[in-house]
Design a protein around this nucleic acid. Structure first.
Length: 419
RNA sequence: GUGGGCGUAGCUCAGCUGGUAGAGCUCCUGGUUGUGGUCCAGGUGGUCGCGGGUUCGAGUCCCGUCGCUCACCCCA
């Protein structure tokens, strides 16, 4: 026997029940973001590898080991998009959007690809909803962006949401700070846990998350990024916070918050859900004032975020899927003449905008009625070779109705019900 | 890449100390409800993940391998 093929590791099929819940995410995003003036954008599923190398940053895990990179027939190096911000900045520059009224507000719902070990809430092909506002460095853009992310999660009833906010300052300030932190860690290396010590060069910020008692002792004395901000950056962050406070958002300032992409500057934030497993981040984002320029556009400030669709769904708990309604089920009780009449009746019903299904499974009449009940059909037309009947599935009432009169009769009944 | 858990019908699972596969649900058919939603009966459906080994005999023991899953890491 031939080996049974499976979906590739880390990917999944969206089955009909799931697809209805995902459609609800799309509708919520359209509603929440559309109301704030964001318009939807779609970019290609793959881009020049260079875009991510320059945009996301050579040193990031994403670029170093998580990209699906391949060469096309023309010898170009392409990469399945691992994130959405760099492509949007590319599109902004490519289409001269800096000439439009600023900021340009865009949202997307797309799939992304990262070569990682799959686990709860983490996949190799996954979906994100994101929003980007390009062309303004006003703190109100930052605050509004964060509020919209929270509003979307709220709309989807994502449970146990926590919002953390911080500021990374400029790239230069961050670099300075990183060195100072590494110096501090090296000076106290003997007190650190082995894991933290091993990561001093790679990711010193991680040391703040350690549970190791001695390490925590060392970190109490460690320099804080927020103290390294320039006057303007500190002022900007204060303004963002004032706006979030004014909006009554419940959040906490976390000076150890780091985002794994190099392009972030100033404001960063992350939204977690306690309803998730180890992959607890449902969404996150921040400001990226140098990114458009980095990918070849004019100097342009930007601010945005992304939220994982699978994680939102996971943290939102079970929503019941609503199956499509069925107004009329056309059952066949006879031979070839009945089958043809039934087929024509179903087509006629659909032209009249009824949700109509025809028996396609070759079932017995009993089986057909059972199927009609299963799909919650409101009416069933039973078409025989010489006559036909219409059955009301709610009341069980049934009467003879000519095939030619079925559609008009159903329409009249449905209207009568005020439907 | 590194660990832990798990792999028996479409789904949820039983299979005790090894003896040639079972249940419930689903689906189909028939009976009973005037032809559905109740009840009854029957039926379809299984390479016991895969490959070796031990044994007269393995779903059950041993080794390997693949897959799923959770966690580390990282992130959405």
């Amino acid at each position: 026997m031939i080996e049974r093929l499976q979906a590739p590791r880390g990917t999944f099929d969206v089955l009909p029940d799931d697809s209805e819940r995902r459609a609800a995410v799309e509708a919520a995003a359209r509603q929440v973001l559309g109301a704030a003036g964001y318009r939807r954008i779609e970019t290609p599923a793959f881009e020049a590898t260079e875009l991510f190398a320059r945009g996301v940053g050579e040193s990031t895990d994403i670029v170093q080991k998580e990209m699906y990179t391949f060469e096309d027939g023309g010898g170009r190096s392409l990469t399945l998009r691992p994130e959405g911000t760099a492509p949007i900045c590319r599109a902004y520059a490519e289409h001269g959007m800096h000439k439009l009224a600023q900021p340009v507000k865009l949202w997307y719902l797309s799939s992304f690809f990262r070569f990682e070990r799959a686990q709860a809430g983490r996949y190799r092909q996954f979906w994100q909803v994101g929003a980007e506002a390009l062309g303004s460095d006003d703190p109100a853009v930052d605050a509004e962006s964060i509020l919209l992310a929270v509003a979307l999660l709220d709309e989807l009833e994502v449970q146990q949401v926590r919002v953390r906010v911080s500021s990374l300052g400029s790239l230069a300030a961050r670099r300075d700070y990183r060195e100072r932190l590494q110096e501090h860690l090296r000076a106290h290396a003997d007190q650190l846990s082995a894991e933290v010590r091993a990561r001093i060069d790679l990711n010193p910020l991680r040391a703040f998350d350690s549970d190791h008692p001695d390490t925590r002792e060392v970190m109490r004395e460690a320099p804080r990024l927020l103290d390294f901000l320039s006057a303007q950056d500190a002022e900007h962050f204060a303004a963002v916070r004032a706006l979030l406070d004014a909006a009554d958002l419940d959040y906490e300032v976390d000076p150890t918050l780091v985002r794994g992409l190099d392009y972030y500057t100033r404001t960063v934030f992350e939204i977690e859900s306690g309803a998730l497993g180890a992959q607890s981040a449902v969404g996150g984002g921040g400001r990226y004032d140098g990114l458009v320029e980095q990918v070849g556009g004019p100097p342009t400030p930007g601010m945005g975020w992304a939220a994982g669709v699978e994680r939102m769904l996971l943290a939102a708990g079970e929503g019941r899927a609503v199956a499509p309604e069925v107004d009329l089920y056309v059952a066949v009780d006879g031979g070839q003449p009945a089958r043809q009449a039934a087929f024509a009746l179903a087509a006629e019903a659909r032209r009249a905008r009824l949700h109509a299904q025809l028996e396609l499974g070759g079932r017995s009449l009993k089986g057909q009625l059972k199927q009609a009940g299963r799909v919650s059909a409101r009416y069933v037309a039973i078409v025989g070779d010489t006559g036909s009947a219409l059955r009301d599935m709610d009341s069980g009432d049934q009467e003879d109705v000519q095939v030619s009169g079925v559609v008009a009769r159903v329409l009249r009944e449905l209207r009568g019900l005020g439907a």
